[in-house]
Structures are given as C-alpha cells and as structure tokens.
Amino acid sequence: MENKLPAVEISLNECKGCALCIESCPQTVLSLSAPFNKLGYQYAIYAGSGCTGCDACYYACPEPGAITIIKQKKVKM
C-alpha cells in the first residue's frame, strides 16, 4: 500500500462526470468510467498508479467531497 502513494481517491457516488479533473491531470492517470453511478453519471476513475500528488484534480473538481488526495509528507521529528 505504502509504495502506491501518492494516490487519488474518487468517491464513486459523488462524481457528476464533468471530467474537469481528467483535463486537469498532468499525468493523464484519470479517465471516465463506462458504467454509471447512482446519480446517473459516468464517473472519474484513477488508473491506480502514476499520481504525483500535485492536487490539480482536487482543485479542479467542483464537487467538494468527491476527490481525496493521499500522500506522504516529510515531517521533522
């Protein structure tokens, strides 16, 4: 798990499929699903690797809770 960070998590049923995150991603690791979610939209999915934790998709997303970025940060002890 740890070596897969940074990663982006997309809340399946909060995504409205506007695809602005996909356009914002410099690594092109996001894409639109074929199936529809509960709201009736195709939703953004993460390829599973390649995320650099740049936060671009987080800020591009108009749905406040849909995207979560998980990354590791150096902290001084």
Binding site: P64, G65, I70, Q72, K73, V75, M77
Partner: peptide, 16 residues
C-alpha cells in the same frame, strides 16, 4: 530526524 507521514487532503472542515 525526519519521518514520513500520510496526509489526507479531502473535504475541508469548513464544509459540512
């Protein structure tokens, strides 16, 4: 000493 810590950036507290 430095340590790696996992940071989760999700919905800000000032949103319900």
């Amino acid at each position: 000493m430095e340590k790696m810590e996992t940071v989760v950036k999700g919905k800000p507290e000032a949103l319900c």
